[in-house]
Amino acid sequence: MTDNNYAYMLHNIPGWGNKTLIRLIDEFGSCENIYNATENELKTKVTVKQYEAFLKAKKKWSLEGEYEYLYNRGIDFYSYVSDKYPKRLKDIPDPPFALYCMGKLPDENRPSVSIIGARNSSEYGKYAAKLFGEKLAMSGVQIISGMARGVDGISQQSAIFAGGSSFGVLGSGVDICYPEENHSLYDSLITSGGVISEYLPGTQPKPQYFPPRNRIISGLSDVVLVIEAREKSGTLITVDMALEQGREVFAVPGRICDSLSYGCNSLIRQGAGIASCAEDIVEYLRRNICDATMKIKESEDNNKGLKKNIDAESSREALLNNDMQKCIYRELDFYPQTTGVIFEKIIAQGLQMTVSEVMNALVELCLLGVASQNGMGFYKRG
């Protein structure tokens, strides 16, 4: 029997939080010693309610049986005293006493970047999340995020598609997929990285569980990258935690008139690094984080990623039926533009088209799946 058997039991005691458990580790030296402490030894270290909860749990808990049941479900358990507990987390304020994991934990010898941002992201945000997730993964960077819809999930899925590793930190038990729509990503993370939580298996997602898990997302990372965030966004809670932990923060700049970019532009104004491309972050990691034991792939892989994106753009243009469609497609952006604005750009090039022709071509691009329309205009799909 290992110390993890005792740690798993202690972590299941109601009312015994992270601070209590880590304080007791400092006092007694191991979880086994806490378990075997005398009444007098333990009563002076915990409250009456905590001690009563301990006695109740001790009577009902099977040290070997419960831990074996956890293991047989494919869930690994890492306590604060485990050799495999992430070193990055030991240095943060209020570290979790234990982590549950399906898949694996991030590699300590590889750089990690958390990518976070808006759930209801724009096409620009989706494109940026895909681009950064893919290119950083191709550089050997591990991607950490919260598996949420929008920026989080897109960046993680793109990292996996690029052959990299990604890790999802959940606001529920690791055996609960949330949101349900990301079940495919959840399965991919377990295969190509891991899903991680400090919450007991079976814990259902609740709003109060998500802010605390954000300190683990940033804590496991060397850099936090923000892609789209409103001025008052939950994403900025993670940024505050990252700064408290001494992590570097980068933000993708956006248009000054776009509310989804207010948060990012504000972070840049306050001193966050500007992420205009993945290489900005790769170079920071290479200069400040990586050493002889932690390496990033050289730019050859980045060039492959660039070629891949160029090829993808070429394949989209190959779907277009005529020069008029190709011309208009090249004027589209990931931000919506009205038909009038697009028409003015076409005329500025000296091309002869009517507003009606431009409008018909835009509708055709939407039918081909390379463009979309909302109430603000037409935009390129990522």
Rank of each mutant, 00 (worst) to 15 (best):
E300V: 07
A251R: 04
I217F: 04
A275G: 00
N302C: 14
I216S: 14
E279T: 08
L267I: 04
N288E: 11
L220T: 09
L267H: 08
D222V: 02
G273Y: 06
C264W: 03
I289E: 01
T238Q: 07
L285Y: 02
A229G: 10
E248N: 03
K308F: 15
P253E: 01
D291Q: 13
G254N: 13
E313Q: 01
I256P: 02
I237Y: 08
C277G: 12
V249N: 01
S314R: 10
N265R: 05
I289P: 02
L260C: 14
S314K: 10
N302L: 04
M241Y: 05
D291E: 12
V282M: 01
C264L: 09
A275H: 00
I268V: 01
S266L: 05
I289W: 06
Y262T: 03
L306P: 03
N214F: 11
I237W: 12
C257A: 11
P253N: 00
S259T: 11
S276R: 07
G305Q: 11
I256H: 12
K307Q: 14
M294R: 09
I227R: 06
D280N: 08
D291I: 08
I289K: 10
R286L: 12
I281T: 03
D280F: 05
D240E: 14
L260M: 15
L285D: 01
N302D: 11
A229P: 10
V249W: 01
I227L: 06
N302M: 07
K304H: 09
E244S: 09
I281W: 02
V223P: 00
D280K: 05
E279L: 09
I310H: 14
K232P: 03
K307V: 13
